[in-house]
Simulated assay, not measured.
Amino acid sequence: MPLHPLQTPHSGYHWDGQADRFFEGWYFRVTLPETGQTFAFMYSIEDPAGGQPNSGGTAQILGPDDGYFCRTFPDVSQFWAWKEGLGLGHWRGRPQTSPRLLSSSEFKHYVAEGYQVTATLHQGYLNDPVAGAVAWHYHTEPVYGWASTGQPQQSTAGFLSSLPIFEPGWQILMAHGYSTGWIEWQGKRYEFTNAPAYSEKNWGRSFPQKWFWLNCNAFDGVADLALTAGGGRRQVLTWMESVAMVGLHHGGKFYEFVPWNARVTWHIDPWGYWHMRCEKLGYVVEVTGTTALAGIPLRAPTREGMIYCCRDTALGDVSVKLWRQQGGNLDLIVAASSAQAGLEVGGGPWDQPWIKE
């Protein structure tokens, strides 16, 4: 099984075979600057031992103009995933071969409905009797994992994420890459070459109680810039903590602002406004996300199973500024904006702004 050299920690499947409550979820995004649209594929598996009320898989797709598609996979025995690295798939029905990575032609021949994905390949076909069919096949060349160019890949939550004390775990799999291929959505075919791509994952027993997230790697006039930021109230052993981070890749360098190396502040409205500012030795970053769109409700794993508990748009506005701090001076390293940001809030309560100063 060939693994890409930019494979990050936690790329492999985390389930230990036990029947305890468990989920793992993956997110793959392709941004199409020429059309101003985005496709985001969200896969999840819950209680994979089977026989539980929430056992099964889900594929959600966020499409053009924040369109939405969802298909469930009740049979956990038709799910496969690699322990050693990024590779997974799920099939509906009873294909004539065992669940595993197939060649592209084998997949088309054997799998009536399903998907398969690795660090470099993404292929699938899903057909909903009401919503219609979605098909896709593209290849990806990673540019940034979660580290500076030439450096060892890092865990998103630092070294502690290798210990099972956080709920949930979170790992950016690929901060930036380029995808080439096609996606067919509601009868329209989108072909793309070197479209900005991104992927991440979560795993554990439930999502955070409350969270927010920003992502963009298709900035106007600045090709070599990738932003991922987020925060949440998550469980650590027996207590809850509020944490947030900003990660930037630019010019071969990874700029990481996390609670143990930076002062991280935020102001997040229940919907429509995201603002973060982080300061650490030598650097300052400021991120602002806004949208006038209503967004689309998405499902996420909870202790009660998959429920609609978060709101997203893939067409948000975002601006980011990164400075180098020398003495009392701030020297701008990069400033950029985009109208193709992923913006999200989830959990709750969201009856008032969430402010951390």
Rank of each mutant, 00 (worst) to 15 (best):
H4R: 03
P5Q: 09
Q7H: 06
P9G: 12
W15R: 07
A19H: 08
L32C: 06
Q37F: 12
T38R: 10
A40D: 07
S44L: 05
I45L: 03
D47C: 14
D47P: 13
G51T: 15
Q52Y: 04
P53I: 15
G56Q: 13
A59P: 00
P64M: 13
P64I: 09
G67T: 09
F69W: 14
D75M: 03
V76C: 12
F79R: 04
W82G: 04
K83S: 14
E84G: 09
G87S: 14
L88E: 05
G89C: 07
H90N: 12
W91Q: 04
W91R: 07
R92I: 03
S98P: 03
L102D: 01
S104A: 13
S105G: 01
E106S: 14
E106L: 11
K108L: 05
H109R: 15
Y110F: 08
V111A: 02
E113F: 11
E113P: 10
G114M: 10
G114V: 08
G114A: 05
T120N: 04
L121D: 06
Q123Y: 02
Q123W: 02
Y125I: 12
V134T: 11
V143F: 04
T149Q: 14
P152L: 04
Q154A: 05
T156R: 11
G158F: 02
I165D: 13
P168G: 05
A175C: 08
G181M: 07
W182Y: 13
W182K: 07
I183L: 07
Q186L: 14
F192T: 14
N194T: 15
A195F: 03
Y198M: 09
S199Q: 13
K201G: 03
N202D: 15
N202S: 11
W203F: 15
R205P: 02
P208F: 10
K210T: 08
W211E: 05
W213C: 11
L214T: 14
A218F: 09
F219Y: 10
F219W: 10
L225K: 03
A226I: 00
A226K: 03
A229D: 08
G230Y: 08
R234I: 15
T238Q: 12
W239M: 07
M240V: 01
V243H: 02
V246G: 01
H249C: 06
H250S: 04
H250C: 08
G252R: 09
F254I: 00
Y255E: 01
Y255M: 06
F257L: 12
A262T: 07
A262Y: 03
R263L: 04
H267D: 13
H267K: 05
I268L: 10
I268Y: 06
P270H: 09
G272I: 02
C278F: 00
G282A: 02
T288H: 00
T288R: 05
A292C: 13
L293A: 06
I296L: 14
P297D: 15
R299K: 15
A300G: 15
A300D: 09
R303W: 03
R303A: 12
R303K: 14
M306Y: 02
I307C: 09
Y308N: 10
C310D: 11
T313D: 06
G316N: 10
V320D: 02
R324H: 13
Q325W: 05
I333W: 00
A335C: 08
S337R: 10
Q340P: 01
Q340W: 02
Q340L: 05
L343A: 08
G347H: 10
G347P: 00
G348V: 05
W350A: 07
